[in-house]
Each structure stands twice: as C-alpha cells, then as structure tokens.
Write a protein that binds this DNA or RNA. Structure first.
Lengths: 137, 137
DNA sequence: CAGCATCCTCTTTGATACTG
DNA sequence: CAGTATCAAAGAGGATGCTG
C-alpha cells in the first residue's frame, strides 16, 4: 500500500514533483478546505466533500499525513482528532489559491454561459473567458 | 468515451472545478511544457514527458483539446500538427506557474536533504522547507 | 466518530499492432 | 509521425462490516 502515481521528480519538469504530492483525486480539495477552515474533524471534511467516500477520504488523509502535508492532532474527545496543515503543507498555499481562483472564474463564466442557454454542449463557449484575477484565501 | 473524473463544479469548492479540467494524470505536465515552448509536435511532448506512454499522451491531448484548453493546428507537413494553448488555456497560466514554482522549491529542498544522506525515509525532513518565491514562466 | 480490512467491480493504463 | 483499436494487467474506488 501507499504506492501512488509515480512522477519523475528528477528529470526536468517541476510540475511532476508537485503532482507527486498533490495529485491524489481529493488531495487538493482537502487542502483547500483546510486553508479555509484551518482545522477540521474527519466528519467536517466528509460533509464538505460530498462526492468523496468515507474510505477515500481516509486514504487521502493518510497519504497527506504520510507526506507531512497535514498533521493529525489528538483532542480531548477520544478518537476524534483534528486535521491541520503543517508548515510544509502551508507552502502549498499559492498552488491551492491559484486553483481556487481559476475555478471561481471558470464557474462564473460557465454559469453565465449556462444562463444564456448555450445548448451547443461547450463548444467555443470557453474561448472568451477572461483571465482570472482576485485572490480568495 | 471521454468520461472522466467527475467533480462537483456547482456546490461550493472552486478547486473541484479546476480539477475537472486539469486533473488528468498528465494534463498539467503537458500544459507546463506548452507554456514553456508555446508550440509542440506530438513527438516533442513524447520526448519531454518520458513516463507518459504514446497512448496516454494521445488521450490526454484529446481531452485537453475537447475542453478547448489546447488546439491542434495543421502544418504543411502532413499528419504532423502542432499543439498550442488556446486563449482559454492561457488563463491557466497562474495555476501551472504556481505548481512549477512549488515543484522547483520542493526539488531544491529535497535534493539538499538527499545530499545530507537523510536516510530516515522522509520523516520530518519536509517540515522546515521554506516558502517558494520565484516565478518561472 | 475515525479508520482499517475485505470483497468485488469498474476504470485506467501499458504493450502491441494497425492505419493514414 | 500521429492517432486508433484491442487485450490483459494493474489500480481505483464503493459497499459493508468490524474495532477502539
């Protein structure tokens, strides 16, 4: 277990190195919520990320913890730890912020398109989307 | 075909919207190379991304083209088009840049750690990595 | 509630081969 | 060279049940 998508961290592309850490299906989403809320229980994340199953959430959290991106902190309430970003994990903020910013712009544009009843699937509709600007986190 | 990881673009998390477009195993890597080189032949990308198979590269390019992120431009040399970013695709630059910047810092830090013969796997070694700063693209 | 284990299914992906 | 098709192997992921 704990194998994962193997990208080549050496030869060349720095994006592959980043993917080695955040490429899990729900990892960047989990990180986004932790940047917003700072600390969450398992059940908090489960509620925020509805499409991620209980099992998947546990796996993704375990991998992020293994990679020192997040840490599990015990609480007085037994068996109900909170998850927080480590200092290392916090260095990923620019990446998650960029993703969140772009996603918001994309949503805003797509929603507007949808309101125009743009039925021709999604052809051409994306091509005039303006550059994202604001910052969220 | 052309199914793909379905994230919830509506309810809440903007990161999920971004993933809907760039979550493919090699998509962000392809985009990185296109931001660096501006236009590439299929074989150029194949050479740059050694761990991505011929088949996978074709699939990822097809999906990116379908999503209007890149465009395939015919050339005089028959059957040898070049791939370029669309205007829409260019809006992803901040995202790819953030990933590349972080990856470079991560590599620099990990390499230094490796030189110190840090054998205890990777425990704790990531925790003191400084925040990434420079911009590459 | 958190989270691990098992089972079982569907998807992804590499290897190989074939076309324009 | 670019792109597609087929096949088999590997991996991802849901459902369920069990434990502390």
């Amino acid at each position: 277990m704990m194998k994962r998508h193997i990208y080549d961290c050496q030869a060349g592309c720095p994006v592959e190195s980043t993917l080695q850490i955040i490429a899990g299906k729900w990892k960047s989403v989990i990180l986004y919520h932790l940047f917003v809320d700072h600390n969450c229980h398992f059940s908090d994340l489960e509620r925020k990320i509805k499409d991620c199953s209980h099992r998947m959430l546990a796996i993704q959290l375990a991998e992020l913890e293994h990679d020192q991106v997040i840490a599990k902190i015990p609480t007085n309430t037994a068996n109900r730890p909170i998850y927080v970003l480590t200092e290392f994990g916090k260095t990923l903020k620019p990446v998650i912020t960029a993703m969140a910013t772009w996603g918001d712009y994309y949503n805003a544009h797509m929603t507007k398109e949808a309101q125009q009843l743009d039925t021709n699937e999604d052809k051409k509709s994306k091509l005039d989307m303006p550059l994202p600007k604001p910052n969220l986190l």
